[in-house]
Amino acid sequence: MYRKECYVFDQNQPIPAVVRNYEEKDFSELINVQQECFPPPFPSELWWNKEQLHNHVTLFREGALCMEVNGKIAGSMTGLLVQYKPSDPDHTWEEITDNGYIRNHDHNGNTLYVVDISVRPSYRKLGLGKLLMQSMYDVVIHKRLERLLGGGRMPGYHKRADKITAEQYLQEIVEGKSKDPVITFLLRCGRTPVKAAANYLEDQESCNYGALMEWKNPFYINVSHND
C-alpha cells in the first residue's frame, strides 16, 4: 500500500492532500476525472471503464495511484511493468499498455510504464501532476526498477510540422527555444527525452507522434551491484 500525506498550495493557502492507491470504491469518481479531463468531442469510449480500472488494481496495485485534495479525488496516475530494451524503443501506446487494460503486465519487468496521468482542470494550478509523478518515482525505487518511461503528447507540434521534424521540435523544447504544455511539464518533473515516436497514438495536434521520456532510477546501479 502506498500513502503519502502532504499539502498543496492554492496561492498561499495550504490544503491537505493525500496520494494513495486507488480502490474499487473510487472507480466512479476516477471515471468522472476522465470526463472532466477529456470532454466531448473526445470519444467517451476512450475514458476509463470499470474493467480497465479493475485490472489496474488487481494486476498492478502499486501502479494505481490517485490524489485526494480535501478528501476529493482530483487526479490519478496509472502504470504497468514492462520489459523494455533501449536498443528497441519503438512501440505504440495501445501495444505497450494493452489499450489501457494492462493484461500484458509483466511482474518481472524492468521498467514502469506510464499508462495515463489525469488531473481535473479546476485543480491544475496546485501542482498535482508533479506530485503524482514523484510518487510514481517512489514506486520505481521501491520496486528496484531501472526506469520510469512513458510517451507524452506533443500538442504544439501541429503548428510547426510543416517546418521542422518531430525530433527537431522536441530538441527545441529541451534547448528552451520553445515550450509545449505537455513536454515542458514532463521536463519540469525530471523526465528526459528518449525519442519522438511516430504513430504512437491517434492525436491530430501531435501529428500522431509521442515523445518517449524516461526517468532513470538513480539507485539502480547500486541495487544491481548489491543483488
Rank of each mutant, 00 (worst) to 15 (best):
M1F: 02
Y2C: 05
Y7D: 11
Q13D: 15
I15A: 07
A17R: 12
A17M: 14
V18T: 14
V19H: 06
N21M: 12
N21A: 10
E23G: 00
E23A: 03
E24N: 12
K25P: 01
L30V: 05
L30E: 04
V33F: 08
E36K: 14
E36A: 12
P40W: 01
P41R: 03
S44C: 10
S44P: 13
S44W: 11
N49G: 04
Q52D: 08
H54P: 02
H56E: 15
H56T: 15
L59F: 15
L59P: 11
F60T: 15
R61F: 04
G63F: 14
A64M: 02
M67H: 03
E68K: 08
G71F: 13
I73M: 09
A74P: 13
G75P: 09
V82A: 03
Q83F: 07
P86Y: 03
P86L: 02
D88T: 14
P89E: 02
D90G: 08
D90Q: 12
T92D: 05
W93K: 08
E95R: 15
I96L: 14
I96M: 13
I96T: 14
T97H: 05
N99A: 09
N99H: 08
I102M: 06
R103C: 13
D106E: 12
H107G: 01
H107N: 02
N110D: 02
V115Y: 02
D116I: 01
D116C: 09
R120H: 10
S122N: 07
S122D: 09
S122M: 05
K125A: 09
K125W: 04
K125I: 07
L126W: 01
G129N: 10
G129T: 11
K130P: 00
L131A: 10
L131N: 06
L131M: 13
L132A: 07
M133V: 10
E146I: 00
R147L: 09
L149S: 04
G151K: 00
G151Q: 01
G151N: 00
R153T: 02
P155W: 00
Y157V: 02
R160Q: 13
K163M: 05
E167S: 14
E167K: 11
Q171T: 11
I173T: 11
I173H: 00
E175A: 14
E175L: 15
G176H: 08
K179D: 13
P181R: 06
I183S: 00
C189V: 02
C189L: 03
G190W: 03
G190Q: 06
R191N: 06
T192S: 00
K195H: 09
A196S: 14
L201H: 14
E202T: 07
C207I: 15
N208H: 15
Y209R: 03
E214Q: 08
F219Y: 08
F219N: 05
I221S: 03
V223Q: 01
D227Y: 06
